[in-house]
């Protein structure tokens, strides 16, 4: 069987290289019974288009941002709420416990999750230093189109965000239509957005994740043994990608600093103010059924426990 998998990630990136290597390994180990064909660079359209094409069977899978899975299952959003995590260690510890939950929730909707990947922390980057939500209110803040979490976060802080598709961000930064973005370091550099900002607020706003999902009906056409091979090799590939990604993000941070971008440190007071704001956001998102409230409470509780530990 051939699994056609589409993604917005461009070809030639280290991420795609790992994915291609995994595909080659799968082909070898299954003696050619399972082939994976990638469509990188958004040639199959947006994440939404990719999900539509999976539904009609043109594609069997997609590597998508978890944000695009919101209408399939709110479970996919539990890592992406604002100011949830402070460090990558926290993310990793939580993932061990909560990844299986996301996987099983998506399975109920007919999707096999081959892997969840970390895309790093997103920071506020701007032409002016942003310390408080008052500072943010003076800025023209971009949020990705359809990003309900981002929109609600800023609206709660009294900021009317400007939503634009990804493709319009660079030009809009250039023309000044927007002057503040929320993005992870390596993407900011890859998209050249970093050339248009001067400051990074050094306090992670939210954690970004992506996932490869495959249509269950298509996946079940593969023999059980081969399914196991696909899952194992993909899991290994995703583990190595997370390690690579961590390195890339660290490198990108250095590159930002080298490019003369200043990292704005926040006082404890400011941090607390942001986290309080986040509580309001999380409550409001709960009423919109954007994420599973009970599970997220458990996640927060686990984090609290971890932070209490010496």
């Amino acid at each position: 069987a051939t699994l056609k998998i589409a993604t917005l990630a461009p070809d030639g990136t280290s991420w795609m290289k790992v994915m291609r290597q995994a595909a080659a390994d799968i082909k070898t180990e299954t003696e050619g019974r399972v082939k994976i064909k990638y469509f990188p660079g958004g040639v199959q359209g947006s994440d939404k288009s990719v999900l539509r094409k999976m539904r009609i069977g043109q594609l069997q899978g997609g590597a998508v941002a978890t944000g695009s899975l919101i209408n399939i299952s709110p479970a996919s959003q539990i890592y992406n709420l604002p100011f949830t995590f402070r460090t990558l260690e926290e993310v990793r510890a939580i993932r061990e416990e909560f990844d299986p939950y996301i996987v099983s929730e998506l399975a109920k909707k007919g999707y096999v999750v081959l892997g969840i990947s970390e895309a790093g922390f997103a920071y506020m980057m701007s032409d002016e230093p942003i310390r408080t939500s008052d500072d943010a209110r003076k800025q023209k803040v971009w949020v990705p189109e359809g990003d309900l979490i981002g929109e609600t976060t800023f609206e709660n802080g009294g900021v009317e965000p400007i939503s634009l598709p990804l493709s319009d961000v660079y030009t809009s930064l250039q023309t000044g239509l927007i002057d503040t973005i929320v993005v992870n370091a390596s993407s900011a550099i890859a998209l050249q957005w970093h050339t248009k900002v001067n400051y990074v607020t050094d306090f992670p706003l939210l954690f970004l994740t992506g996932a490869i999902i495959v249509d269950q009906k298509a996946f079940r056409k593969i023999s059980t043994e081969d399914q196991a091979v696909v899952k194992r090799i993909m899991a290994e590939a995703f583990a190595s990608m997370d390690a690579q990604n961590e390195k890339d993000e660290a490198g990108a941070r250095d590159a930002l600093a080298q490019n003369g971008i200043e990292f704005v440190e926040l006082s404890e007071e400011d941090k607390q103010a942001w986290e309080e704001l986040a509580t309001g956001v999380v409550d409001e998102l709960a009423s919109k059924e954007i994420y599973p409230v009970e599970v997220f409470k458990r996640l927060q509780q686990r984090l609290e426990e971890m932070r209490q530990e010496p």
């Binding site: 023209k140 359809g146 009317e160 965000p161 400007i162």
Partner: peptide, 14 residues
Amino acid sequence: ARSIFGGGVSWIPP
């Protein structure tokens, strides 16, 4: 809305 009131109406562009 964007240039004068400083924000956008999120449902207009889509």
